[in-house]
Amino acid sequence: MAAIGWLRIHLFSSALNSILTILIVAVLAWVLPGIFSWLIWDAVWGPQQPAACEAARGEGACWSVVWAKIRFMMFGTYPFGEQWRSGATIFVLTGLIVVSAIRWFWNRWLIAIWMVGIALSFWLMGGGLGLTPVKAEQWGGLPVTLILAIFGIGFAFPLGILLALGRRSQLPVIQAFSVIYIEAIRGVPLITVLFMASVMFALFMPEGMRIEQLLRAQIAIVLFIAAYMAEAVRGGLQAVPRGQYEAAEALGLSYWRAMGLIILPQALKISIPPIVNIFISVFKDTSLVVIIGIYDFAYAVKKSVETDIAWRNYIVEAFLFSILIYWIYCFAMSKYSQWLEGQLARGERR
């Protein structure tokens, strides 16, 4: 009975509403079965030969391409026998995000955990100390995407906070530097920053000192996101009432203590939605590094099917798989930020 009442209120409250409801249900009934049978019921699942997919062509998706190409998609051209190291790196980096998300670790330990995470990732990927060395040019797939995104976010976050504080600083030199930096970076596309990083570093670096392409891309991404982060944080800083600054000053707290203990905790809380928005877009934007020849996850997925005649017809399925992986990370970030906002608002509600 409750269900009927609900339907009446929400779907059939007026003639127009009823017509729209029926129309939409009709469209869905017409479209959805086709989509679902292609995606699921008529799809080819499991480790099957390309011939099986050929037979189902047009009727169902060929998920066997994921089974056949999973290692190339995930790890790119990383040496086949050493790919467990790439896999382990995915776990380390994903674990690093999870740990960073837990409030209990929001203290000095987080810096130590990050240092361990960084060292572990680069040891696993690059080798040395008992592991076979693997050059960065051979790295690829999801670990590369995670490295660029996670370290990009991790380093850009504190840098962005400093830039935001700098932009509101009383010291003209620091303020001018912050403003010029932020406005200059925000005015150019990420792609050009990546190009510049790829070409310019080589021009300015002394002979014999070569920075890996991956590191250049990493630095470019950090510098790029920091500018956006700064503006998100500045929004939060401006929303903290003046009285909070004054109360902190009146108690004799130094500038950095006042910022660290009073102002930033409140400002960052206000800035959570725009900050997470930046995180999510950065995670996906790392796929642009392909233009300077880095094998990230999206590119590895594309290459994995393009380079194999037997599977090259199933690029759509391959891309759908990569979309799923991107979506899992991004959706998790989105849900986490909603949860965090609720947590931080708890108790202090006015």
């Binding site: 009285g243 909070q244 004054e246 109360a247 009146a250 409140q266 809380k269 931080l344 202090e348 006015r350």
Partner: peptide
């Protein structure tokens, strides 16, 4: 002591 208290809400 301020007119609007200025306690730290967090």
């Amino acid at each position: 002591v301020f007119q609007h208290f200025n306690l730290f809400p967090h």
